[in-house]
């Protein structure tokens, strides 16, 4: 289909994550209108009930708001968007750290590794 979904997470959650990333990257901006439930369903190849669940969850998390008769919009509340940025950031860092610690790296090694990697990236560009 249009998109691939991994098997271990609910599909609605994977679409929700994708929309959150688009917002954090600025592809979708504060106050932008999101596609209708049916459009989202067709784009992602999922059923409209799943698409509806994505929007219900986004609204529950105060990332979007529904305007009666007009559709779903990204919130214009900058503090909400900032907290979304922070949440995604700490989620990724936490996952990375957990992964590295499981392999037995110390925090000092991890930090040094990141700095080293960054420097070599700068050097090559």
């Amino acid at each position: 289909m249009v998109e691939d979904f991994n098997s271990s997470q609910p599909i609605y959650y994977q679409i929700l994550q994708r929309i959150c990333r688009q917002i954090v990257r600025g592809e979708v901006q504060a106050g932008d209108k999101l596609p209708s439930v049916r459009e989202l369903a067709v784009q992602s190849g999922v059923n409209p009930n799943t698409a509806q669940r994505v929007y219900t969850e986004l609204e529950r998390l105060h990332i979007t708001e529904t305007r009666r008769g007009q559709g779903t919009f990204v919130t214009e509340d900058q503090s909400q968007l900032q907290s979304l940025r922070d949440t995604l950031k700490s989620e990724r860092i936490q996952a990375f750290l957990q992964d590295m610690r499981e392999m037995g790296y110390t925090d000092a090694e991890i930090v040094a590794g990141i700095q080293h990697h960054q420097q070599s990236e700068e050097g090559s560009s």
């Binding site: 098997s7 271990s8 997470q9 609910p10 599909i11 609605y12 799943t50």
Partner: peptide, 14 residues
């Protein structure tokens, strides 16, 4: 289907 994914961590074929 979402329950299958959440509780069994599997897609349908599995």
């Amino acid at each position: 289907v979402e329950t299958i994914r959440e509780t069994h961590q599997q897609h349908l074929v599995g």
